[in-house]
């Protein structure tokens, strides 16, 4: 397989985005209760919904990240991450609009909390990367 510049960019983005999501998923796997608390802080979901999302979302992030890195089923993984990032951005925007002083709950930071606006700004390039991967992988044909 010849490594063209676009392929190299795609490869790097896949590794980067995949790595970020593998990390984000892995650190939250072992603290479901804490993550449920972070989700509850958004005051959006019902009580049990917080726990359900806290149970499933880390696995979703982990799986999509691993798929991106491994190169297996890139398009569905990129599509899922595009969806996830969009949902994250909507949640963060709503938290900002309501003036909630909360931690974004993105990773399980032990030190200072990450305010919603910072997470929002951080999410934009991730969204762009996932969209780019989705589109480029399509152009390359039946990889997905």
């Amino acid at each position: 397989m010849t490594v063209l510049p676009t392929n190299r960019l795609l490869f790097l983005l896949r590794l980067g985005l995949g790595g970020i999501f593998v990390y984000a998923g892995a650190v939250k796997l072992f603290d479901t209760v804490g993550f449920a608390g972070s989700i509850a802080a958004y005051q959006t979901l019902p009580y049990f919904g917080n726990y359900l999302v806290a149970a499933i979302l880390p696995w979703l992030e982990l799986i999509c990240g691993l798929l991106l890195i491994s190169g297996f089923r890139i398009r569905p993984a990129a599509a899922m991450l595009t969806g996830l990032n969009t949902v994250f951005i909507l949640f963060l925007a709503s938290a900002m609009l309501r003036g909630l002083d909360i931690d974004c709950g993105c990773f399980r930071e032990t030190a200072a909390k990450t305010p919603p606006w910072l997470a929002f700004v951080r999410d934009l390039p991730l969204l762009a990367a996932s969209i780019y991967i989705f589109i480029s992988a399509e152009r390359k044909g039946s990889q997905g």
């Binding site: 796997l29 479901t32 726990y51 359900l52 806290a54 149970a55 499933i56 979302l57 880390p58 696995w59 979703l60 982990l62 799986i63 999509c64 798929l67 089923r73 398009r75 569905p76 993984a77 599509a79 899922m80 997905g144």
Partner: peptide
Amino acid sequence: RDCTLILLIASALGVTWN
């Protein structure tokens, strides 16, 4: 189909795990 599969697998793992 693949997206649904990913979602189902993640849900199964997440619910089992917790």
